[in-house]
């Protein structure tokens, strides 16, 4: 692995890994709260946010796009909560209504407004542009210690690293409260834990992770990483702490192996070129989930043993 690797593969791999981790960590709690699809919902509703941000600012610069996406995510979360409470319906149904409506609104806006001059397309939204996030300023491994070279890294690296710190920090600081309120909300409330505020905080953190990851790697990875690594991890252990650790390991393995398979896999089979890294990373995470379904030590449903 020489200078070429550092220049062309290191940063996409790093970005993929950071994005996978930022999504997989909160995914553990979303999964246990039966809210896993909120990641899916958020990655859909960012589309109208991005389009509106573009219409207002006229640029496709990262910050207005992310701001628009974040605002759309927050609007969506509030709408979901409102529909859930006012209509007194299931969270999944409320999510379904909100994200399809907002996504459709985004498509409509995109159609009606003159965005043809810029690159706002569906393919980009799905697959991101992981392969293009290369580090041109790098000359080899030594560049990791060279400040000028480091400053030329794709901005997604620093952005996703910051988001990962926020996500992991939130989970660490509120670990006990999150654990109790996820298992038994009534008991959490009786202890004085502000469980609903905490649940909202979790969704906001999720939205931040989804938007940052979406910008770098597209929605396929985002959706897969909220669900696959935590679900596979749940089948490996009966301890929440270990589950979170397993999910992080699975996220890293998916990102690294997925990137390598996408870049070199086709060559091994004699084909030319490569396939989408985002698609392959999501595929690897799905294969890991399938493997744990078949061989994970805790895969047996225990409900049967529950009767007195």
């Amino acid at each position: 692995m020489g200078p070429d690797f550092v220049q062309l593969s290191l940063t996409p791999m790093l970005i993929g890994t950071l994005a996978a981790l930022a999504c997989a960590l909160p995914g553990n709690f979303l999964l246990l709260r039966r809210q896993a699809l909120i990641g899916d919902a958020i990655s859909h509703v960012v589309l109208p946010g991005i389009v509106v941000a573009f219409l207002i600012t006229g640029t496709v610069a990262a910050w207005p796009m992310m701001l628009g996406a974040s605002l759309a995510a927050i609007v969506a979360v509030l709408l979901i909560e409102a529909i859930k409470r006012l209509g007194r319906i299931d969270a999944g149904a409320a999510m379904g209504v909100v994200f399809t409506a907002m996504f459709a609104g985004g498509v409509l806006l995109l159609e009606q407004s003159d965005t043809s001059s810029v690159h706002l397309d569906v393919e980009h939204a799905l697959y991101g542009n992981l392969e293009s996030l290369i580090w041109l300023g790098a000359e080899g491994w030594s560049s990791l210690l060279d400040w000028t070279a480091l400053s030329q890294m794709p901005p997604q690296v620093a952005r996703l690293a910051a988001v990962l710190v926020v996500v992991a920090g939130f989970i660490f600081v509120f670990w006990n409260a999150l654990k109790i309120s996820t298992f038994d909300e009534g008991f959490a409330l009786s202890l004085g834990i502000r469980a609903r505020l905490l649940g909202f905080g979790l969704v906001v953190v999720t939205a931040i992770a989804a938007v940052a990851a979406f910008d770098a790697v597209g929605s396929i990875i985002v959706i897969a990483m909220f669900i696959c690594p935590p679900a596979a991890a749940r089948l490996m252990t009966d301890d929440l702490g270990r589950q979170v650790a397993w999910s992080a390991a699975f996220a890293i393995v998916s990102a690294v192996l997925g990137y390598i398979f996408a870049g070199y896999g086709p060559l091994w089979f004699g084909a030319a070129g490569s396939v989408s890294a985002a698609g392959m990373i999501a595929t690897v995470s799905g294969l890991i989930l399938a493997a744990t379904c078949l061989f994970g030590p805790k895969r047996k449903r225990i409900g049967a043993a529950r009767e007195v």
């Binding site: 409260a177 654990k179 996820t182 298992f183 008991f187 202890l191 009966d238 301890d239 929440l240």
Partner: peptide, 19 residues
């Protein structure tokens, strides 16, 4: 009122009382 499939052992649940 709770999902008993939650990843916790008996002692973990009891320790929630010490929050």
């Amino acid at each position: 009122s709770v999902d008993w499939d939650f990843p916790a052992r008996v002692v973990d649940v009891v320790m929630m009382g010490l929050y």
